[in-house]
Every structure is written in structure tokens, then in C-alpha cells.
Amino acid sequence: MEIVVGTQQELGQARLLQMDRYRYRVFVDTLGWELACDPGRERDQFDHDETLYVLAFNDQEQVIGTARVLPTNQRYLLAEVFPQLMGDQTLPCDSRIWELSRFSAMDFGLAGRTSGGQFSSVVATQLLDAVLRCAAARGVRQLITVSPLGIERLLRRAGYRARRAAAPVRVGDHWLFACWIDVPTQACTIGEVTDAADYRSIHRAA
């Protein structure tokens, strides 16, 4: 598995198209989210030039995991779409607090893949470790994310320091909550993480 980190410009149009199509397949086709997006491609107002992406690729260079991170002193999903999930707590607005969104680790190429939501495989742990490593390297102290209730148990079982920001809220057919995830002060031990520019140079002939 290869983890690639970069902005839209650094990833390039081909990999952005892969990501958009993968996100549509995960969040619209599989999870049934009602999102305002073009058919077959999922992106929103929080996908812009300063957004940072962490993508996982398999040996066939197919996307098997995605994550989107933004500092909370910019526009971000929780603040604009789900502010009620913070309850009486103040919405974060701090360059040292990032929002993690559009997180998924589904490998559609695996035969017999079980349906466990967007946090359903060992890829998820490596992908989240990569996000934490990126965050730690940039001086980030915490992540905040909008999560379904089932993710809470999985995060704790995997050993992450995660906790609710407030009580869960029913949104449509789903119970959601704002989840804090502490960023370790030391870099996580994970597989190789490649900057997008380096990845393109290595695989330029592909």
C-alpha cells in the first residue's frame, strides 16, 4: 500500500479524478448519503486549493482510502453544516486543530469485502496513522471530525485517544457526533508516506 499526501495541485488531475470517483462510490453509492454533487464524482465547497488530502493506493494504483483535512481557522464542514453536533461547546477555530472529513477505507477490489462502513479494514488504521503523522509534523494538536456512532467503538478498539465533543444528534436517518482525536506529540510508526510530488516523479511512466 502507498500513502500519498498533497493538495489538489500536488496530486494532479488524474489522481483527483480517482479520488472523486472513489468518494462517490463510497459515500453516495454504498453509504447512501444524499450529497449535492455531479453524478459519479463527489466533492463539495471544502475541496479547494488549500485542502490537504491523504490517499491510500493499492499495488494496482487504485484508490482504497481517502481522508481530507483542513485547519479550523478556515471554512470547514462541522462549522458550516453540522454546528449542532458541538452542543454548548465553542466551535474550534485554531490553526492547530484540524478537521478530518471524507474519511474512508474501503477496498472495492477485495473479494468478499465485508460491509462495515467507511472504517472497515486494516487500511483504515494505516490511513488514520498517516493523517496523524501529517498533523503532528505540522504542529497540530487535535483533530475534530463528524462521525457516526459506530466509529467511536472502532477508534477506541484501535487504541486512538478519541472522545465525544457533545451528545450524539440524530441527523436524518443517522446518529452523528463530533469526535475529538488527539494527535500524538511524536510521529506515528506507519508505512512509507510519500508526498504527491515525489510520488508523481517515481511513477511518471505509469
Results as ranks from 00 to 15, higher is better:
3 I>V: 14
4 V>S: 07
7 T>Q: 10
8 Q>M: 14
11 L>E: 03
13 Q>N: 14
17 L>S: 14
19 M>Y: 00
19 M>R: 12
21 R>E: 15
22 Y>K: 05
23 R>Y: 08
29 D>A: 11
31 L>Q: 13
31 L>V: 02
33 W>H: 08
39 P>A: 13
40 G>L: 11
41 R>H: 15
42 E>S: 09
43 R>K: 13
44 D>A: 07
44 D>P: 06
47 D>K: 10
54 V>H: 05
54 V>M: 06
55 L>T: 11
56 A>M: 11
59 D>F: 04
60 Q>L: 13
60 Q>H: 14
62 Q>E: 15
63 V>K: 00
68 R>G: 09
72 T>N: 12
73 N>L: 04
74 Q>W: 10
75 R>H: 13
81 V>Y: 03
83 P>L: 06
84 Q>A: 14
85 L>Q: 06
86 M>F: 15
92 P>Y: 07
95 S>C: 11
95 S>M: 03
96 R>V: 04
97 I>F: 01
104 S>M: 07
104 S>R: 04
105 A>P: 03
105 A>F: 02
108 F>N: 13
109 G>W: 04
111 A>R: 09
118 Q>G: 01
119 F>W: 13
119 F>K: 01
120 S>N: 10
122 V>R: 10
122 V>T: 11
131 V>T: 04
133 R>G: 10
134 C>G: 00
135 A>K: 04
138 R>T: 04
140 V>G: 00
142 Q>D: 15
142 Q>V: 00
143 L>W: 05
144 I>C: 14
146 V>K: 06
151 I>A: 08
152 E>A: 14
154 L>G: 02
154 L>S: 14
159 G>R: 09
161 R>A: 14
165 A>H: 05
165 A>V: 14
165 A>Q: 11
165 A>P: 01
166 A>K: 02
167 A>M: 01
170 R>P: 00
171 V>S: 11
172 G>L: 06
174 H>W: 07
177 F>D: 04
177 F>V: 08
180 W>D: 05
192 E>G: 06
192 E>T: 15
195 D>M: 01
196 A>F: 05
201 S>Q: 15
204 R>S: 15
